[in-house]
Amino acid sequence: MAAVPFERIDADAPKLAPANAILTVDDIVKRFETPDGVLTAIDHVSLSVAPGEFVGVIGPSGCGKSTLFNVIGGLLDGYDGTVKVAGERVRGPHPAIGMIFQEESTFPWRNVLDNVAFPLEIAGMPRAERYDRARHFVKLVGLDGFERRYPAELSGGMRQRVSMARTLAAQPKILLMDEPFASLDEQTRLLLGDKVLQIQQQLKQTTLLITHNITEAVQLSDRVVVMTYRPGKVKRMVEINLPRPRSSEIVSSEAFGRYVAQIWSDLREEASRGLDDEESRKLHEGEKR
């Protein structure tokens, strides 16, 4: 594979705010009251995503990634700044945004088909039509043949695919994923990454992926937003100029390795700060006791 030039761009670079953005996150600040005072989880974070684009947000633990996920998904309020979908301000869960959560989130009392048909049932779609559509999405995530199985009968990776199919069945304009493969082993994670790439390319699905895994971010994204440790700010945006369609085989390429190394060089300092902070907090807690 030919060497791909590495492009590293500062957060405020104008070319990274696409004019036709479908999702715009503008100057978000979210603070939490804690027993130790006010904690700023995310601090003046702005980013935008163009239709069909796959953007990864990466940062160390404690950088406010999940807070950002909840703010964009409308699950968290009481923040400064705005989130807009196609120009419309988001003030709560928005039908154009579909969310895939980090934790296992299938309904254990529903079989695969009923899980996937859930949003269609809520939308009042007739039974036959919603099952037809649910079957389509079950097939899309590669679970055909498992329609009547319950989540307890599936592996962790299969359950995450059920969650993905359920969210996709609602046909959201923007797919928002919060470390969906965090609990899976590395091999399953790579293979599911392939599945996500395949689906994203097939549906031209606009996607925002929150992750702490550099390999995953580079493998899947068109752009990676690197965040600082607490308070979470955008440290850098990195364009991933790897050819598409991609598969997990790309992780062995030289260009891929360079992207990983560059992002790690940005993240390393933040991760170290996070680790130091964690250790001093533990020490402080120990002294208090």
């Binding site: 699950l75 709560g92 869960p93 039908p95």
Partner: peptide, 14 residues
């Protein structure tokens, strides 16, 4: 009831 299941419901505007 696990918080994530409630959040799934919220994300679907139940």
């Amino acid at each position: 009831t696990r918080r994530v299941l409630i959040n799934v419901g919220r994300s679907f505007n139940l």
